[in-house]
Design a protein around this nucleic acid. Structure first.
Length: 630
DNA sequence: CGGACAAGCTGA
DNA sequence: CAGCTTGTCCGG
C-alpha cells in the first residue's frame, strides 16, 4: 500500500550557497492541507501560543493573498527549511481523527482523487468546538431479544465476512447481534452502513429505543443537529449512516457492518468514484476490526474479498418471494407485448400491485419476428442494437448500416437471428406513460404513474392500489402485495457488465417489499423472453450462487472487474495525462474511444500505483477507478 | 484555486 | 512604449 507522499521534498538539491539564518522556531509547527481542490499540497504554520490543536482539526490559514480553510495533517513536524512560517489564522474546530486523515490519503491513492475531497466527507457540517464526554457502553432496554442466531454468530466471528441474507430476513436482529458481539477490539463501537439515509434513520431510531447509544451520521440533515450527531459519534457510540458515513468518526472502531453491500448507491458517481464498502473495509482492516458485508445477492467483489456464510437452504428459500417467470415468446400477441394474461389476472385480483417498466432511453431491444428470440451478442450475450454507421468489423467483412452492434464488447454481426436464421426483427422499445393507459383499461380502475422525475404526492402514492413506474417506484413504496416486472429483458440484457447482478438485485429489492408484514411469501411476476437467464434461475430457486457460478468465469474471460482493476480517463486534459502516463508495466491501455481511455491492470495495486505516478495536468480531468457505466 | 508577475501582442 | 491579454508559477 503506497499512498503517494504529499509533502514534496526536493531531493538532490544543493544547499543554498549563502547560509540561511535559521529563524528559531519556539512554538509548535502544524502541517496544513488547504481545503482547495486545486492545491493538493501541504503548508507549514506556527501554532499560536496555548492553542489546543489536534491532527484533523479544521483551521483557517493565510495562503498567498487569501485566507482558506484546511485541516491539520501533522503536528510538531520539522518545517521545510528556508521558509518563514506565519501563524495559523484561526483554529475553527474539531475535524476527523488521525486515522481518517490517513485513510483519506489511502482513498486518494485508491480512486485517484485529492485528499481534500475525502477530508470534506470526514468533517462535521457545522463547527464542533468540543466533544461530549464519552459515557458508558450501551445497556439494552429490558425485554429486547439479544440472542444471536448461530448463523449470525458464525458471520460475526469472521474477520472478513460476507453474509448472504435473503430479502425477507430480519436484518435488525443481525445489527443488534453485531453491536453487542465481542470482537478483538475491546470496548469498540460498531459502524453500520445502509444504502439510504432514510433506512439509516429508521435503524438508528430503533436501536435507540432498544437502549443502544447511537449516532445517526447524515450530513444531508445539515447544520447544527447533524454536527451534534457527528460529535456524539466522535465521542463514542454505535454509528449508523449511509454512504457518507463511511467517513463518520467512530471513537474506537470495533466492527463494521455494511447492509445491502450490492447496492450501487454506495459508489460515488462523480469523480473520485469512491465506494463506501471498500472504504470501510479498509478502515476496519487498519483498525484490526472485523468487517461484515451483508446482502441477499453479494457482489463478486465481496465474494472475492471475504468468507461467505449462507443460511440453510430452507431458511434462504423462505426468505425469497415466489418468483413467477412468464415467457413472453409464448404469448398471444393480441394483448400487446406488455400484458400477459397472468399479469391481467394479477392486477384484477386483490392487493396492492406495483408494475415496473424501466424505460431507460436509447437501448433498443430487438426480437426476431419469426421465432421471437432476442437479438444478442454472439460473443458476450448482451442485447444488441442496430448499428448507426457502416464501420468495418474486426474481421474482413465490410460493415453494413443495419448490422447488429454490441454496445458492451463492440462485436458486429449481420442482422440475422442466431436461433432461426430469420432476417427480420421488431423493435420492442416501450414507454411507461403509454403502458399506464393500457393497464388502466385492462384493470378497469385508476393506475398511478411514478418515475424518478415525477413528483407525485406521497399521499397519492400511498393510497393507490395499482402503481406503474420505473425502478424508482421500488424506492418510493414501502410495501406491496405483488411486484410485476413488465419487461425484465431491459434489466437482464442491459449494456452494462453488471446487468445480471443488478437485475437480481432488483428482484431482491422487490422481494423485500412484498415480504414485509405479510406472513406468507409475496409474489413477484417477471415477464421476459429469456426465462432461463441465470439471474432468473437464481431468484426462482432462492439461490444467488447460481448467478455467480456463470458470472465469475465470464468476467475472467472478458477481462472485466473484479477479475481486473479498471479505470477510465476522460476530459479535456486526458490526452496530456495519458501522454505522461505512457504504458506502465502491467497496465493495458485502450483508446482513445470517444475521448476516453480505458486502463486495465491485474489488481488495484498495479493500477493505482501507475495512476499515482502522473501529476494532474491543468484542465478538466475525470479519472474513474472502478467505473460503473461499462 | 487565484493572485502576481512576466512575456507577448497591438496601436500609434 | 503604454495598455492590454495570456501564460506560468507559487503559496508556508
Amino acid at each position: 500500500m503506497s499512498p503517494r507522499s504529499e509533502q514534496q521534498t526536493i531531493a538532490g538539491l544543493e544547499p543554498p550557497a549563502v547560509a540561511v539564518v535559521d529563524v528559531v522556531v519556539t512554538g509548535r509547527v502544524a502541517r496544513v492541507l488547504p481545503d482547495v481542490l486545486g492545491i493538493d499540497k501541504e503548508f507549514d504554520y506556527l501554532v499560536p501560543e496555548g492553542a489546543d490543536v489536534h491532527v484533523g482539526d479544521v483551521v483557517r490559514v493565510k495562503l498567498g493573498a487569501r485566507r482558506v480553510g484546511g485541516w491539520i495533517t501533522a503536528l510538531d513536524v520539522e518545517p521545510v527549511p528556508g521558509v518563514k512560517l506565519i501563524p495559523l489564522a484561526k483554529v475553527s474546530g474539531r475535524g476527523p481523527a488521525p486515522d481518517l486523515v490517513e485513510l483519506a490519503g489511502w482513498a486518494a491513492w485508491r480512486w485517484s482523487g485529492r485528499r481534500a475531497n475525502f477530508l470534506r466527507s470526514a468533517t462535521p457540517p457545522a463547527v464542533v468546538r468540543s466533544l461530549p464526554a464519552p459515557s458508558a457502553s450501551p445497556a439494552l432496554a429490558p425485554g429486547v431479544d439479544q440472542s444471536a442466531t448461530p448463523l449470525f454468530q458464525r458471520a460475526l466471528a469472521l474477520e472478513r465476512g460476507v453474509l448472504r441474507l435473503p430479502p425477507g430476513a430480519d436484518r435488525y436482529a443481525l445489527v443488534l447481534a453485531a453491536v453487542q458481539a465481542e470482537g478483538p477490539v475491546v470496548g469498540g463501537h460498531t459502524l453500520v452502513l445502509c444504502p439510504s439515509v432514510a433506512e439509516a434513520q429508521t435503524l438508528g431510531r430503533r436501536l435507540r429505543r432498544d437502549g443502544v447509544r447511537t449516532a445517526i451520521v447524515a450530513h444531508e440533515a445539515g447544520g447544527v443537529a447533524a454536527a451534534g450527531e457527528w460529535a456524539r459519534a466522535r465521542a463514542g457510540a454505535v454509528v449508523v449512516g449511509a454512504r457518507a458515513a463511511a467517513w463518520a468518526p467512530v471513537s474506537r472502531l470495533g466492527r463494521v457492518v455494511v447492509l445491502d453491500e450490492h447496492d450501487e448507491v454506495y459508489q460515488e458517481e462523480a469523480s473520485p468514484t469512491w465506494h463506501a464498502r471498500d472504504v470501510v473495509a479498509e478502515r476496519a482492516r487498519r483498525a484490526g476490526a472485523p468487517c461484515l458485508l451483508v446482502s441477499p445477492t453479494p457482489t463478486l467483489e465481496a465474494l472475492g474479498w471475504g468468507d461467505l456464510v449462507v443460511p440453510g437452504r430452507g431458511e434462504e428459500r423462505a426468505g425469497w418471494p415466489r418468483v413467477e417467470v412468464i415467457d413472453q415468446r409464448e404469448l398471444d400477441p393480441s394483448l400487446g407485448p406488455l400484458f400477459s394474461p397472468m399479469l391481467v389476472n394479477l392486477v384484477r385480483g386483490p392487493g396492492r400491485i406495483l408494475c415496473i417498466l424501466n424505460r431507460t432511453g436509447r437501448a433498443r431491444l430487438l426480437a426476431c419476428t419469426s421465432c421471437a428470440t432476442l437479438a444478442r451478442c454472439a460473443v458476450c450475450e448482451a442485447a444488441v442494437a442496430q448499428a448507426d454507421q457502416a464501420e468495418p468489423d474486426s474481421g474482413d467483412r465490410p460493415g453494413q448500416v443495419d448490422d447488429l452492434l454490441c454496445g458492451r464488447c463492440g462485436t458486429r454481426r449481420p442482422m440475422v437471428c442466431l436461433a432461426c436464421g430469420g432476417a427480420r426483427f421488431k423493435n420492442l422499445r416501450l414507454g411507461v406513460s403509454k403502458a399506464r393507459e393500457e393497464l388502466e383499461v385492462l384493470a378497469g380502475e385508476p393506475v398511478v404513474e411514478v418515475t424518478g422525475a415525477s413528483v407525485e404526492q406521497d399521499s397519492a402514492v400511498a393510497s393507490a392500489r395499482l402503481l406503474i413506474g420505473t425502478e424508482a417506484l421500488l424506492h418510493r413504496v414501502a410495501r406491496a402485495d405483488a411486484v410485476a416486472f413488465l419487461d425484465f429483458d431491459q434489466e437482464l440484457l442491459a449494456l452494462r457488465y453488471r446487468a445480471g447482478e443488478q437485475a437480481l438485485g432488483l428482484l431482491a429489492r422487490a422481494g423485500r417489499l412484498v415480504q414485509r408484514g405479510t406472513g406468507d411469501r409475496g409474489r413477484i411476476l417477471v415477464q421476459t423472453r429469456t426465462p432461463d437467464h441465470p439471474a432468473l434461475m437464481a431468484a426462482r430457486h432462492a439461490d444467488p450462487g447460481r448467478l455467480v457460478e456463470g458470472e465469475q468465469p465470464l468476467r475472467v474471460a472478458l477481462g472485466l472487474p473484479p477479475a481486473v482493476a479498471m479505470a477510465v480517463v476522460s476530459g479535456q486534459a486526458a490526452p496530456a495525462f495519458m501522454a505522461d502516463l505512457g504504458e506502465p508495466a502491467g497496465v493495458v491501455v485502450q483508446g482513445p474511444l470517444e475521448g476516453a481511455w480505458r486502463l486495465r491492470a491485474p489488481n488495484h495495486q498495479v493500477l493505482c500505483d501507475a495512476l499515482a505516478t502522473v501529476a494532474r495536468p491543468p484542465g478538466r480531468l475525470r479519472v474513474e477507478v472502478d467505473p460503473l457505466g461499462i
